[in-house]
Amino acid sequence: MSDSHNNIEHFDNEAGKMGMWIFLFTELFLFGGLFLVYAVFRTKYSADFHAGASELNSFIGTLNTVFLLTSSMTVAMSLTAIQKNNKNLALFLVSVTIMLAALFMMNKYFEWSHKFEFKIYPGSSVLKNMNRGELLFFGLYYMMTGLHALHVLVGMILLSINLVKIKRGVVNMKRYLLLENSALYWHLVDLIWIFLFPLLYLIT
């Protein structure tokens, strides 16, 4: 602490983390709105949602859940590593997290392209001829998993920045707020998927 006092620099880890949490709350409500729309339409068109959900591949969904849960652990461990001044282990664990995220996105790519082959995508002729409920189901499916995938991409970018900063020693044993906040963001991505997965893939 005395170093930062000499440099007349104000650094508050607690406040930085609090700011991140407040941002995460806004993210929560963003997805919350979509979950609410899903709940309402699911009640209104339960048979169509049943038909729509049975078309999703629950194996891919489960695999992606495993990837995301594991990556959440590795990013939490990377924070432990940096706090214990184990730079190489931290670099390794962040890299593993990015790799798992890439695997998630790859799965998503295969999943979506498989749907596209059957001409199931927003605005397609096949989708337009489906029942109203199924149209809504796939609309929500693409919107929710798409917005989630966008968050995965942002998380991957954030974690890559962390890799560079850890390597350069900017993120270190004493200053790890960037990694801590990026990890919090990554956990939020995981949290949202924990709800998306059963709602879209499992409950048919």
Partner: peptide, 19 residues
């Protein structure tokens, strides 16, 4: 059941992973 299990999972992620 799925929602209850998901809530337990979310609670553990927040408590332990998110510290």
């Amino acid at each position: 059941a799925a929602l209850i299990i998901a809530s337990i999972k979310v609670a553990s992620v927040i408590t332990y992973f998110m510290h």
